Computed example of a mutant assay.
Amino acid sequence: MGEGRRTILITGASAGIGAALARVCAGRGYDLILTARREGPLQSLAEELSAAYGVAIAVIPADLADPDAPVRLVEAITVRGLAVDGLINNAGFSRTTGFLTTDPADHAAMVRVMLSAPVELSRLLLPGMAARGWGRVLNVASLAGQMPATGGDTLYGPIKSFLIKASQGLWLEMQGTGVHVTALCPGYTYTEFHDVNGSREQVSAAYPKWMWMDADRVARIGWDAVEANRPRVTPGVMNNVLAALGGMLPNTMALKMVGGHARRLDRL
């Protein structure tokens, strides 16, 4: 990679917030390691950013639903002689149709990609960051992690809540090491996420346009927060209001609030 430049590993970098974060980091002079399942989009993004910003970019496809993927990914990085100075755990998806009607294999893949893989990659890469006295870990969680869980997509919110808590614990543990840790908690964001799980039409109708944010703005807010060593950041005024309400309302009332939203989506 470029002499004197730091290198950021981004998971789920082929589209959406991951690709937006790659653009933000490349624009600020960081070299990149991009990973996702789809090699083609990664290569296209790498060529675009290398030409635009003159940074070095390595593409290493990986499917983090494979339990062995985190170790193999780090091994592939090491073989290339690269050191990871920053980690963005962004890979994620939701393909649930209700807890009882979703294939257990899809549930297992969600847990591996969004919970196990960030933990494993952090454990594999943080020692090197701490030893070098500089590091950045940005865990892309969700506003859903600050709200009561919703029926139907039963695991998504709890997984993101775990990611927020784990980020806060790491933030405390990394104090004084030069390693910054932040949980990024976006609300509804214009990405491929809702196209992949088939909910684009429903969620677009359920919430007005002013509640949505674009991925580039979310990415800038997230990276600014990890540079400033903030333990958590929730982009958007309305998203912060919703997060506060979710934390202050009595449990039964909060559950009715999110339950009403879920029923509205079902009716659309």
Rank of each mutant, 00 (worst) to 15 (best):
L49K: 03
G246R: 10
L115C: 11
E47N: 13
A228N: 09
A117D: 02
G169S: 13
G236R: 04
A52N: 02
G128E: 12
A219E: 01
T177Y: 11
A108Q: 14
R112T: 09
Y156Q: 07
G187L: 02
V196G: 01
I10E: 02
V84A: 07
G157Y: 05
R80V: 12
D224P: 06
P186G: 03
G198F: 12
G92R: 00
L268Y: 06
H194D: 13
T97A: 14
N89L: 08
V203Y: 03
R132H: 10
A76M: 02
E192W: 07
V59L: 04
P61S: 07
D266A: 15
V237I: 15
A219K: 05
G222T: 09
T7S: 08
R5S: 11
D106A: 07
L268K: 08
S142A: 06
L73H: 01
V226E: 02
G54T: 07
I57Q: 03
G92T: 03
A22W: 05
G40F: 07
V137A: 06
A26M: 04
E39M: 04
N197E: 00
L21M: 15
R37D: 11
L249V: 14
P70R: 01
N240K: 15
T7N: 08
G176H: 06
L64S: 08
P127E: 06
K160G: 00
T177C: 10
L34K: 05
P41E: 03
V218S: 02
L268Q: 08
Q202H: 11
W134L: 01
A205P: 06
W223S: 06
L172H: 13
G187W: 03
T78S: 13
I57A: 03
G178Q: 07
T189S: 05
A243Y: 01
K209D: 15
S142M: 03
G81P: 10
M1N: 12
G176E: 07
T191W: 05
P250L: 12
L163A: 03
D106K: 12
A243N: 05
T182W: 09
L73G: 01
T182L: 10
E39A: 14
G92F: 03
D31I: 13
M213W: 09
S167W: 04
G260E: 09
K209F: 03
G98Y: 11
L184V: 11
Y30W: 14
S199I: 01
M147V: 10
L45A: 11
D266Y: 03
S116H: 10
V218N: 00
G128F: 05
G40E: 15
M1C: 10
P235A: 12
L64T: 07
